[in-house]
Amino acid sequence: MLIEGKFTLKAPIQEVWDFLLEPGTIVSCIPGAEKMEAVDDKTWEGIIKDKVGIISVKLQFTQTFAEIDPPKHLKAVGRGSALGGLGTFSQESIVDLTEVAKDEVEVSYKSTVNLVGRLATFGERIMRAKVDSKGAEFTSNLQKKLMEVQSKKA
């Protein structure tokens, strides 16, 4: 499953970059994320709790920054499993920052999510739709947070 998109932010590229790398920023934007713990400055462990209608899912996951190329490129990989033997998932996300104008940054992201097991096969249409909407929620969270930080600074 591929989720991709881009948005622009009015901020200096370094500022956006620093924010992205700040411990916990990305993780805290994941919808339903709770109990986040930093293992080291590159790795977090946590639990996501979510619901698809009457189905409740609890995912245990680990997230690591695999590539860091400041202030332009970031790759995060994560893997986890759903409690109750419902399946496992892995994801690989690439975030690229491009300065489109002075103090204007285009953030483009590309996330490949793999679900394996019962959860994934229960209904491709539902899981895909749900992952899509969660992806959208994630990016809107990220955007919001970035704007919050900016407005605070301003």
Partner: peptide
């Protein structure tokens, strides 16, 4: 629909 989800262990 419900029994299918229960058979899949998606709801317990």
């Amino acid at each position: 629909s419900l029994l299918i989800l229960m058979r899949q262990k998606l709801i317990t």
